[in-house]
Nucleic acid binder design. Structure first.
Length: 754
RNA sequence: GCGGGCGUGGUGAAAUUGGUAGACGCGCGGGAUUCAAAAUCCCGUUCCGCAAGGAGUGUGGGUUCGAUUCCCACCGCCCGCACCA
C-alpha cells in the first residue's frame, strides 16, 4: 500500500477478511464480561441496501464497536425480515419464485453490508423465511393458543374480487384495489386473532418505565392503546328497546339534550329498513373523505329517527339522531350528547336547533352564563344538575356512576381504543398457521413433532388468489386427534409476527426450541435499539406484546424488550425534474451536473428544475446508491459522512461536496498517523490537555449518540495535533485520535494501527 | 381540528445548570506550492460600516446584572392522528 495515501480499495477488504477470519464480532453468551446488546431494526430484503440502511447500521456499529473497546461482550446481530408481499408481487410480475427472489436479494444485500465493515455477528444470521425460524414461530403460536391468547373470530375485511385477496386499508385507494383497480368488497372471514387487549393495561403502564425512549414514541403508544374511563348505561327508548351508550363525562348527564348513534349502528339499520330517507342519509355518511383533517372539518350531519330516549334522572324525552360523527367501532356506537361541554355535540346542536344547557360553570353563581360560541370542556363545579350541584367534575363522575350501579341501569367501564390483533393473511409468502381443520374435532393444533409446517415449493402464481388454498395436495392431511381426513389452515401469519420475537432468536438459537430462557436472560433486554420512526406504533407495540405474552406463559423473564430506543432521521436529497407536457419527469443525482449555478442534465446540457430536499425515494429518483459511493470513496468516508453534521435524530441532507470533505479527512488523518514519531520526546502541556478533554467529550457524545458532536471534537484535536511540533504528547494525541476514530472509521484505524 | 416538535450565518449545525453566539464541516474569497493541474498548506468569511462603532439566534413583549436558553402572545415550517363520546 502507498504510504502517502490511504487506499480503501485495498484496506477495506483486507480488514473485513481479517475480522471475519478472527471471528472478532461473534458474541459469546457464556462470557464473563459485562454484556450489552446493540440492535438495529433488521431489513426487509427488497433488493439492494439503500442509504437509510447505511445510516441506521453505521450508528449501531459505532456504539457496538465503542462498547467492545470498553470491554463489553457485545451482541450485535443481523438478519432478514424476509416474508412479505413484495416477494409475491415479484413472483406475479416476473415469474420468479418468492423464495428464490428473497434469498437472492439477501445474498446481494449481505455483500453490500459486508463492504461497509460492520461489526456484526454473522454467525447468528437468519431469515424469517427459513423453515427453522418459522417452525419455532409456529411452536410459539401454539404456546399462545394453549394459553388462551389466540382465538378465531369472524371479521370484516377488504376483499379484492379480481386479485382474490384481502387488502390492507392502505391498499384500498378510493374504494378500489391498488393493483387490480377493482371495486373492493367488504367480506366476512374467519380470522385468527391474538389477544393483545388482555395486555392493554400493562402495555400502557409499561410505557411509563421506558425512560430511554423518545417522548414522542411513548405518547404515540399511549394514544394508540387509548384508555378511557367512564360510564356505560342504557336509555329506554320510546319503542321499548334499550340503547346502550358510553360516556367519559357521566358528570354532565343533566346536560344531555339528544342521543346519537353511528350510521352503521343496528338501530340506524333498523330505522332504514322502512324509511328510505334514513337509508339515503346512511349511504351519504359512508361517502366522503376518511383522513383525520377531512373528518375534523366535515360538517356535522344528522337524521332525526323520530324515536326518543328517556333520561334516567329527569325522565325527559331526548330525540335520537343518526349522526355522521359517531363511530361504530368505539364504545357502543351510540352517545349521549352534551352540547354545552363537547364541541362536536355543540356544533351539531347549533345546526339542528337543539338546546345547549350549561351543567358545568366556574362557580354556582355563573349557572346561567351563556356560551361564547363554543363548548366548555374544562373544569368547574356542577350546576343545573339536581343532586350534583356544587360538586366538582370528579366528584360528580363518581356519584353518577355509583347511582347507576346501585340502580342497576349502568356501570363504570374502561374502554380501550386498542383492538385485538388480526394475524391472518390469505397469502403464500408467510408463516403457515399451524392448525388443522377437522370436520369431526374442529380446529386442532399441529403436533409439535410435526413442526415446522413447511410452505410447499411448487406453487403457481399465474392465477390470482392464495396459492396455498388451491395447491393440489398441500392442504390435505389427517386430523392429529381422530386420524380422519382433514385440511390444513391455508392462512399465513402477518409479517409483524416475524419481527415480534426475532431479537430473542438472535440472543439464543438452540435447534430444538425457539430460544433458551437462561441464555436470553444473559442478553435481554436490548440495551440500544435503533430504527425508523415509522415503526413507532405497530412493530414496537407488537414486540412489546409478544415479550409480555411469552413472559406470561413462562417462556421468558423480561417484560420489556427494548431498554433504550433511538429513532433516526432520514437521508434526504434535492429532487431534479423537468416538465414533459402534463408529466413531471424525474432524474437521478447521477444524471445531473450540479457543479454550476444551475443544475443541468448531463445527457443534453439543458437545465432541470431543482426541487425540495426530501427523503430519498425511488419515485422521485433522488437516490444515491451506497455501493457506488463506497466504490468511489471507501467505506470509512461513507460511514463518517453518515455521522457528521446533522444530529442523528434529524434528517441528513446528502451532498456530493459533503462526502468529498469526508474523503479528504480520511486522508488527512492518515497523513497525521504517518507523523507518529517514536523518537519524539517531551511534554506539550496544551496539546495533552486538549487530548484528554477530547477523549472525555467524545466518549460522552458517543454515549449520548450525539455522533455529530463527537465528529467535531475529533476534527478539532486533529487540527491541534497537526499544528504541534513532535513530542511525546503529540504521539499520544495521534494514538488517541486513532482509537477515537476507530468505531467510526474502523478500516483506517486498523490500517493505521498496523 | 387536536397532539407533538422545530425556527441560530450562503449552508449542515455548535453553545454544561441563564454567563465571550456561530465551535466543527460544507461552500465562498484571497494567497503559497506547481510549467500546468490534482492534492496539500496558510489567511479570511454573521450583517451594516473605510474605520471607530453598531446590530444580530422567526416576530413582539416580559423576568434578570445578564436570555439562543426561562415566561406570555403571535407568525412560519415539519411530524403524528382517532370526530374516541
Amino acid at each position: 500500500m502507498n504510504m502517502q495515501r490511504f487506499d480503501p480499495s485495498v484496506a477495506d477488504g483486507r480488514w473485513q477478511r481479517a475480522w471475519d477470519e478472527a471471528r472478532c464480532f461473534e458474541a459469546d453468551s457464556a462470557s464473563a464480561r459485562p454484556k450489552t446488546y446493540v440492535l438495529e431494526m433488521f431489513p426487509y430484503p427488497s433488493g439492494r441496501i439503500h442509504i437509510g440502511h447505511v445510516r441506521n447500521y453505521t450508528m449501531g456499529d459505532v456504539l457496538a464497536r465503542y462498547r467492545k473497546m470498553q470491554g463489553f461482550e457485545v451482541l450485535h446481530p443481523m438478519g432478514w425480515d424476509a416474508f412479505g408481499m413484495p416477494a409475491e408481487n415479484a413472483a406475479m410480475e416476473k415469474g420468479v419464485h418468492p423464495a428464490g427472489w428473497t434469498y437472492q436479494n439477501i445474498a446481494t444485500m449481505k455483500g453490500q453490508l459486508k463492504q461497509l465493515g460492520f461489526a456484526l455477528d454473522w454467525s447468528r444470521e437468519f431469515a424469517t423465511c427459513d423453515p427453522e425460524y418459522y417452525g419455532h414461530e409456529q411452536a410459539l403460536f401454539i404456546d399462545l393458543y394453549e394459553a388462551d391468547l389466540v382465538y378465531r373470530w369472524t371479521s370484516e375485511v377488504n376483499w379484492d374480487p379480481v386479485d382474490m385477496t384481502v387488502l390492507a386499508n392502505e391498499q384500498v385507494i378510493d374504494g378500489r384495489g391498488w393493483r387490480s383497480g377493482a371495486e373492493v368488497e367488504k367480506r366476512k372471514l374467519d380470522q385468527w386473532f391474538l389477544k393483545i387487549t388482555q395486555f392493554a393495561e400493562e402495555l400502557l403502564a409499561g410505557v411509563q418505565g421506558l425512560e430511554n425512549w423518545p417522548a414522542k414514541v411513548r405518547l404515540m403508544q399511549e394514544n394508540w392503546i387509548g384508555k378511557s374511563q367512564g360510564l356505560e348505561f342504557s336509555f329506554t327508548l320510546s319503542n321499548g328497546d334499550r340503547l346502550p351508550v358510553y360516556t367519559t363525562r357521566p358528570d354532565t348527564i343533566f346536560g344531555a339534550s339528544f342521543v346519537a348513534v353511528a350510521a352503521d349502528h343496528p338501530l340506524a339499520q333498523a330505522v332504514a329498513m322502512n324509511n328510505c330517507e334514513a337509508a339515503s342519509f346512511i349511504a351519504q355518511c359512508k361517502k366522503g373523505g376518511t383522513t383525520a383533517a377531512e373528518l375534523e372539518t366535515a360538517e356535522k350531519l344528522g337524521f332525526d329517527t323520530g324515536i326518543s330516549a328517556r333520561h334516567p334522572f329527569t325522565g325527559a324525552n331526548l330525540p335520537v339522531f343518526i349522526a355522521n360523527f359517531v363511530l361504530m367501532d368505539y364504545g357502543t356506537g351510540a352517545i349521549m350528547a352534551v352540547p354545552g361541554h363537547d364541541q362536536r355535540d355543540f356544533d351539531f346542536a347549533s345546526k339542528y336547533g337543539l338546546p345547549i344547557p350549561r351543567v358545568v360553570a366556574a362557580s354556582l353563581e355563573e349557572a346561567a352564563k351563556p356560551f361564547d360560541g363554543e363548548a366548555e370542556a374544562g373544569e368547574g363545579v356542577l350546576v343545573n344538575s339536581g343532586f350534583l350541584d356544587a360538586m366538582s367534575v370528579e366528584e360528580a363522575k363518581r356519584e353518577v356512576i355509583s347511582r347507576a350501579e346501585a340502580g342497576g341501569w349502568g356501570k363504570g367501564t374502561t374502554v380501550w381504543r386498542l383492538r385485538d390483533w388480526g394475524v391472518s393473511r390469505q397469502r403464500y409468502w408467510g408463516t403457515p398457521i399451524p392448525f388443522i381443520h377437522c370436520p369431526t374435532c374442529g380446529v386442532v393444533p399441529v403436533p409439535r413433532d410435526h413442526l415446522p409446517v413447511k410452505l410447499p415449493d411448487d406453487v403457481d402464481f399465474s392465477t390470482p388468489g392464495n396459492p396455498l388454498l388451491r395447491h393440489p395436495t398441500w392442504k390435505h392431511t389427517h386430523c392429529p386427534k381422530c386420524g380422519g381426513a382433514a385440511e390444513r389452515e391455508t392462512d399465513t401469519l402477518d409479517t409483524f409476527v416475524n419481527s415480534s420475537w426475532y431479537f430473542l432468536r438472535f440472543a439464543s438459537q438452540p435447534k430444538d426450541k425457539p430460544f433458551d430462557a437462561a441464555e436470553v436472560a444473559q442478553w435481554m433486554p436490548v440495551d440500544q435499539y435503533i430504527g425508523g420512526i415509522e415503526h413507532a406504533i405497530l412493530h414496537l407495540l407488537y414486540a412489546r406484546f409478544w415479550t409480555r405474552a411469552l413472559a406470561h406463559v413462562g417462556k421468558l423473564e423480561v417484560q420489556e424488550p427494548f431498554a433504550s430506543l433511538f429513532t433516526q432521521g432520514m437521508v434526504t436529497h434535492e429532487v431534479y425534474s423537468r416538465r414533459d407536457g402534463a408529466r413531471e419527469v424525474y432524474f437521478t443525482p447521477a444524471e445531473v451536473d450540479r457543479s454550476g449555478q444551475a443544475a443541468v442534465l448531463k445527457a443534453d446540457g439543458q437545465p432541470v428544475a431543482i426541487g425540495k430536499v426530501v427523503k430519498m425515494s425511488k419515485s422521485k429518483k433522488n437516490v444515491v446508491d451506497p455501493e457506488d459511493i463506497i466504490r468511489e470513496y471507501g467505506a470509512d468516508a461513507v460511514r463518517w459522512f453518515m455521522l457528521s453534521d446533522s444530529p442523528p435524530e434529524r434528517d441528513l441532507p446528502w451532498s456530493e461536496s459533503g462526502i468529498e470533505g469526508c474523503w479528504r479527512f480520511v486522508q488527512r488523518l492518515w497523513r497525521l498517523f504517518g507523523q507518529y514519531d517514536a523518537a519524539a520526546q517531551g511534554e506539550d502541556e496544551g496539546l495533552a490537555r486538549k487530548t484528554h478533554q477530547t477523549i472525555a467529550a467524545v466518549a460522552a457524545d458517543i454515549e449520548a449518540l450525539a455522533f455529530n458532536k463527537a465528529v467535531a471534537r475529533i476534527y478539532e484535536l486533529t487540527s491541534a495535533a497537526e499544528k504541534s511540533a513532535p513530542s511525546a504528547s503529540r504521539n499520544h494525541a495521534i494514538r488517541a485520535l486513532l482509537l477515537m476514530a476507530s468505531p467510526m472509521m474502523p478500516h483506517l484505524a486498523e490500517q493505521g494501527w498496523a
